[in-house]
């Protein structure tokens, strides 16, 4: 037992180190996002429509993660959305076997980086243009 405690000590420094690394990464990620936003993605579209950062992120200086409910607050129920896209070919992207009509918007529609076609890696014929 005594031995165990001694062994533990050797690694107590780890949190400090980890915090440092996270600090650096976080800085980098933030910078990258800021650059992308200027590149004309959905985040920019929102901003140009008068949606201020804080309307999604609560506090612009310390942006909180955005839960999907925020999207729905303005854009409405995803079931309605699925009805609107029912005739999109080759299939309705908003109703599928994996999530029904409740896929998280953010799996495809990104705000601060390029949006992606989440279906594509598995279903190669589903070549949607994702705004």
């Amino acid at each position: 037992m005594k031995n165990n405690i001694k062994q533990r000590r050797g690694f107590r420094f780890a949190p400090a180190l980890v915090a440092l690394v996270i600090g650096i990464c976080a800085g980098g990620v933030y910078a990258a996002h800021a650059a992308d936003a200027k590149g004309g993605d959905l985040g920019k579209l929102h901003a140009s429509a008068g949606v201020a950062c804080a309307m999604c992120h609560v506090d612009a200086k310390h942006p909180a993660p955005v839960p999907m409910e925020k999207c729905l607050g303005c854009h409405g129920d995803t079931r309605k959305l699925a009805e609107k896209t029912a005739n999109v070919k080759p299939r309705n992207p908003h109703e599928n076997r994996h999530y029904g009509t409740e896929a998280d918007c953010n799996i495809c529609h990104h705000q601060h980086k390029k949006s992606e076609n989440f279906c594509l890696p598995c279903h190669q014929p589903f070549n949607f243009d994702v705004p």
Binding site: R9, F11, R12, F13, A14, P15, A16, L17, V18, A19
Partner: peptide
């Protein structure tokens, strides 16, 4: 520094 950090509580990540 390592000694100074020894007081910090549990690890943040698995090893």
């Amino acid at each position: 520094k390592a000694e100074a950090a020894q007081g910090t509580e549990a690890l943040e990540f698995a090893k």
